[in-house]
Simulated scan of single mutants.
Amino acid sequence: MMAGLRALLPDLRGRLADDAPLGPRTWFRVGGAAEALLQPADARDLATCLGHLPPDMPVTVLGACSNVIVRDGGIDGVVIRLGRGFSDIVVEDNGLVVGGACLDMTVAEHAADAGLKGLEFLAGIPGSIGGAVAMNAGAYGSDIATVLDWADIVTRDGNGVRLSGPALGFGYRRSALPAGSVVTRARLHGTPAAPAAIRQAIAQIRDSREAAQPTRARTGGSTFRNPDAAISDRKAWELIDAAGCRGLTLGGAQISEKHCNFMLNTGSATAADLETLGETVRRRVRERTGVTLDWEIKRIGRPAAPTTGDAP
């Protein structure tokens, strides 16, 4: 496969590696390898690459890998990960233009330095801007839909497109981002305010998150979405707690005692442990409360191949 890819991408300016381990890149520290890992140099390099890849070649886009479980068998095809060429932050009047690889926390801090209020909530989201746009990430009373003016994307066929906020069809923890496309940068707006006051708000968010969430553990952020109000008036963590799942373990995976909508790798978990534990929680919540929780964490790739002696 790699020989074929290199032939398809003779002008690649970024990096291409085969059988690249992904587990160490994820916040859970689990998962198999990418069949091919592509790290384009910039948006033009990305567009050229996508334009030359066959339409039937599987392509998976990974960001900060904070809200994802990469299964133990790894990911087939090409995995794209954005690097330094997608991390610029430019301050404009009443807004920032930020690269898709920028960490949410970094964007919040730059907004504070620029005296722009309204982006503090990003300090409470573990991830990057590309992923935040793709899933309409939100926390502490705001979300991407509230602050996004436009996003530049490269589509699966290699075309660059700029989409406005309304064109992205944002909903709760979702967007209508075209399948296979990559967010390369976005413009986020804010309102002028005193930098000191913004920094204080960010500090409060950090303190609140530290007090309520297992931020120092190997975790992946919120495991399940909060159900629609028409289905339940309880948040996901309340339903999980009501089903008796706080602290539940399976192999090296555990439901956090501190915040039971967080799963932990206690040190020896596999991706299969984490996913199976999550499905166990979903089943128990459904049986106890009648509510079916939807995953917020993405599970991607192939399960590990059965070892000799395993049942087919």
Rank of each mutant, 00 (worst) to 15 (best):
L38I: 02
L5R: 08
W237P: 03
I205S: 03
R15N: 13
I153G: 01
K235E: 11
D294E: 15
A229S: 13
R162D: 07
G158K: 01
G14A: 10
Q213A: 10
I129S: 06
R173S: 05
T308H: 11
A203L: 06
A108F: 03
I198E: 05
T270S: 14
G127A: 00
C245G: 04
G4K: 12
I231C: 09
F86A: 08
G301P: 07
L8Y: 05
R286P: 00
I297V: 15
L53V: 01
P55F: 11
T276H: 12
I205M: 06
R15L: 12
R13G: 13
G131S: 02
D56R: 14
F262L: 10
E120G: 06
D310T: 14
H259T: 05
P54I: 03
D207N: 09
V147G: 00
I80F: 12
M2P: 00
L16Y: 01
A112H: 01
R234C: 11
E210F: 11
G85A: 09
G244T: 06
S128V: 02
G115E: 08
S268E: 14
L5K: 04
T60M: 12
R84V: 11
A253T: 01
S164A: 01
E279P: 03
A41W: 04
S181G: 02
R234S: 14
T266F: 04
D241W: 04
L264H: 09
T184C: 04
S175F: 03
S268N: 14
I89D: 09
V59D: 10
T270E: 03
P40G: 07
G165R: 11
S268W: 08
P58G: 08
T276A: 13
L38C: 07
G169D: 05
K258F: 07
R156E: 04
E279C: 10
A47L: 05
T276E: 14
H110D: 00
Y172P: 04
L122F: 04
M135T: 11
A269H: 10
E35G: 10
R286Q: 14
I129H: 02
T308S: 11
P21H: 07
C245W: 00
L22Y: 08
S256Q: 03
P192A: 15
